[in-house]
Design a protein around this nucleic acid. Sequence first.
DNA 1: AGATGCACCTGTATGC
DNA 2: TGCATACAGGTGCATC
Length: 274
Amino acid sequence: MPELPEVETVKRSLEPLLCQKKINKVIISKEIVIAHPDADEFCRCLKGKSFEALLRRGKYLQFVLNSKDTLIAHLRMTGRFVLAPAYEIIPKHTHAIFTLEDGNELRFTDVRRFGRLWLIKEGEKDSFSGLNNLGPEPFSPSFNSQYLYHKLNKRKVSIKQALLDQAVVAGLGNIYVDESLFAAGIAPWRKTGEITKEEWERLAKIIPEILADSIKNRGTSFRDYRDGLGQKGDNLVRLKVYQRKGKPCPRCGEEIQKTVIAQRSTFYCPLCQK
DNA sequence: AGATGCACCTGTATGC
DNA sequence: TGCATACAGGTGCATC
């Protein structure tokens, strides 16, 4: 579900409410969501610790604790982290509850149970979560046209598949790849080896702009996504191609088409994207 | 090494 | 209404 703008919105909504707050107790009701270490140790290590900072890298959340241990989370398709008063009804599919000293609970809810949590202790090497295999952040200077060209010009995959690869660039998913390729005027099935220098430049410039716009709108709530307070984002109405099959292209009026590329639904304008 | 396809899950929309 | 099928913001692993 959540891509970079949605995870960033969760981060921003939770950070001020969570920092310096102490965890009294952790309850895990679906142990499968704890990927490392085992659920018992996970709970034992977190009990009594305080949240010190909340960071985002790609689609991962990093909750840094006062012990310098880090709780890492990936929401995958339907995961949510929502802070709510302990007296509020616990939603269905809540798999982990962090009871805070201030009377609130941080709840991890995930209908499809693809989301995962990891606890990495201070000094421990994180070879578990995948966080260390990510490509550059789209907002970092190292994400530029030269980087994209050198990384991808020898590869045989479609540009759509390449941009979905988190080792190429961190944080893009199905929505923002389609939106970025539309904005750059590039057809999603094009092979990366055939993308021109000008096109790489357009992509490197446009991707951070598309993501920043969505962050301003607090993310896209296509279906399940909510921020750290359970609120929907407002970016859905801003999408130009994603989920707009049969509707007019906002640039040229042609009907938006839908196809499948890299096993994912793919939306594009047949006239604007070459 | 790089490419591909499927497995992991539940809920919802669609069609017969 | 009931049932079958397809599909959904993602990733990891087996296989070729």
